[in-house]
Structures are given as C-alpha cells and as structure tokens.
Simulated scan of single mutants.
Amino acid sequence: MTEAQAGDAPDPLVSVVVVTYNSAPTVGETLSSLAAQTYPDDRYEIVVVDGGSSDDTERVVAEYDAEFHVVDGGTIGACRNHGIDVVDAEYVAFTDSDCAVPATWLRSLVDRMVDAADHIAGIGGPNRPFPDDPAFAKLVGSLQGTVFGSGGSPQSHAIDRVREVRSVACCNVIYDAAVLEKHRFDGDINVGEDAELHFRLSEAGLRFLFDPKIAVSHHLSSDIASFTKKARSYGYSMARIQRRHGKLIRWYSPLPSAALGGGAVAFLADLTAQRARYVPLLALAYLLVSAYATAQVYRDRRSPLALFVPVLLAAQYGFYGIGFLEGLTAADPVPQELP
C-alpha cells in the first residue's frame, strides 16, 4: 500500500537503528544517506548504538540528526537489542555503519511491509560494493553473488525475483516491531547474531521477503587479510551457534570443514598407497566448481580479475572451515569473536 493508496492516513512510524564501533571513517556516509530519504522526515528517526568506540565516531554522529547511545563493550547482538529497547515505532529498520542506503530505501521497505502477509517478519534485500570501492572489494561482492561464494544466501544479487526466504542480511532489513517484542537478538553474540535470530524466527514459522531491487551499498573486505579473517570469524561463530541449538542453522556451514578433512584423508591415503588417486579427483572437482564461479564473476564484472576467483574460493572455504572447527572445539559455546 503506497501513500497515495492510503489516502490521508499517515505513513507508519519507523525507527532506523545503526550499530557502530570505531566507524568514524564510514558512519557519516551512512547517516548522510539516511538523512536523504524520500520517506517523510516526521515519520522516521535515526538511532545510533555504539559498542564503546575509541575513535571519533561520536563526534561524526553529532553532526547529524540522530540519537546516540553507548553500550560500552556490548556485542552487536546487545547493541541491536538496546536500539530496539529505546525506540517506539511500528517498524524497526537496521543498516550498518559501513553502508549507504538509496534515497528510496525506507519508502520501498515500508510499502512492501505494509502489504506483507502475517507470517512475514520483515523485508530485506542485497548488499553490494560501493562503486568507488577497491577492485578487490568488488571482486568479493561478485563472488558472494554466486551460489558457491555465498551458499545461495539471499544476500546474493543473483536472486532476481521477490521471494520468501528464511534469513536476510541485517545491514538491509526492516522488521515488524511486534515481532521484535517477542523475539530479540542474542546479546552474547557478536558475529552471526542475525542468522541466529532468523533461525529462531523460521522455527516459529516466520519468513522474510527478499526484494533484489532494494539494495544497499556495503564496504566489503578490501584485501585478502581482512577477507580471510572475516571468513574464519563467520565459521567460528556459526559452529558455536549451532552447538547451542544442537542442530544445523545453515545446511552448508559444515561443508568447508568436511572438505578440509576429506582432503587430508585423501592425501594420507594417496601417500600410504604411494600413488596419486584421490587427491587428483578432489582437485578436479574443485577446478570444476571454481571454473563455474569464475565464469559467473566474469559475467558480472567483465574483468580479468575474475581469474583470481579460484584463489579466493580456496581462501574463503579454507579459513571458514578452520574457524568452524575451532568453534566446534571451543570450550564455551557462547559465540564471541575469535580469541
């Protein structure tokens, strides 16, 4: 239902919560984009929740019309919950402090949310690299748009139609506030807090609508070190979250670790038999997977940098798998950042 269809009825009130930590270089870009929304100024507010930054984040936020709250030492999950606690609106939207949203972002999310069925907890869309981001970040964005780069996660812009999904990225989402009154983020979780909440929502029969046209710009990993660190961190957190629930949250999450284990077994088997039999077969399978992903990335980027996709896939799978194994064996199943 659009504003015109609603007649004289006012637009729903929306609170936009931005969680931040040491984001002085990027949070201004985020808040500037939120200030430029086509949604009526008197029908939405911006709330920034800071996890205890030590840089100039607070000074940058003060330049914008936004409330500023501090949860010193708080996890991302705890900061998101604090944002929910201090707002009073019909809908609660989230984006991150390294993102920028289009001017029509809130208008598009609200219009879809108003018309959504009762079992829809929220609306989300893809996140893509900024046009002026480094070439490596754009390559990562294209890789994550492939089925092998993202496991088919709806953050991928390869999903080209509106569809129901079990989870969306929390850097681009709007929730029905009534849902968040009953279901909160886990305040112990610092990575993967959205996946964990959305798993519980899906278990309760709720779903999200994914709209590929409602996209936000997101600063992705700009070098191999940050890329592999993030992959390891996601693997670590996902393993610990799944340990807590005692079941798979995402079916594909153990596969990189299984591939690492299978590769080690194949190597030992070939070494014992003194003949190359299993390792070449695994290498061939990987080459086929990476060739398919490379073709998809090249089609998206039209850049020779697509030739680096096999290296990036190996790094992503390898470090995610290592992190997952570390998470499985960690003493405390509460998912925090890597030690």
Results as ranks from 00 to 15, higher is better:
S156K: 03
G151E: 08
V147E: 10
A137I: 04
T104G: 12
T146A: 06
A116H: 01
V92K: 05
E164D: 09
P126K: 14
V92W: 06
A137T: 08
A100P: 00
R166E: 15
V165R: 00
T104I: 05
P154E: 01
G149T: 01
V168S: 03
F148H: 08
S108Q: 08
A117H: 03
W105V: 04
A103W: 07
A103H: 07
I123C: 12
H82T: 09
R166M: 14
F94S: 11
V173E: 05
A103E: 14
S153N: 13
D115Y: 08
L109K: 06
W105K: 02
G122P: 11
P126A: 15
A93R: 04
R161S: 13
D132V: 10
A103R: 12
T146H: 02
D85P: 05
H82R: 13
I120W: 01
H82M: 12
P126L: 14
R107N: 06
F148M: 06
D132W: 09
T95K: 07
A121K: 01
V110S: 01
T95S: 10
D118L: 04
E164R: 02
V140L: 05
R163F: 03
C171R: 05
L109C: 14
A89I: 07
V101N: 00
V168Y: 01
N172Y: 09
P129I: 15
G124R: 03
N172M: 13
A103N: 10
Q144L: 13
R163W: 03
D111M: 07
D118F: 01
V92R: 07
I159P: 02
H157I: 13
V168L: 10
V114A: 15
S156G: 08
A135M: 03
P102F: 09
L106Q: 00
A117V: 05
P126W: 09
P102M: 14
E90P: 04
D132S: 14
M113S: 08
Y175L: 10
E90L: 02
A178S: 06
Q144E: 13
K138D: 03
S142P: 00
R107L: 11
P131H: 11
A117R: 03
A116T: 07
V162P: 01
M113F: 09
Q144V: 08
A135N: 02
G145M: 04
C99G: 12
F130Y: 15
A169K: 04
Q144H: 12
Q155L: 14
A117D: 14
V140H: 00
P131L: 12
C171A: 10
A117G: 06
R112H: 11
L139N: 00
G122Q: 02
P131G: 13
D115E: 15
V92T: 10
V173F: 04
V173N: 04
A177D: 05
G152T: 04
A137P: 02
I159C: 06
Q155M: 09
D132I: 07
L106T: 00
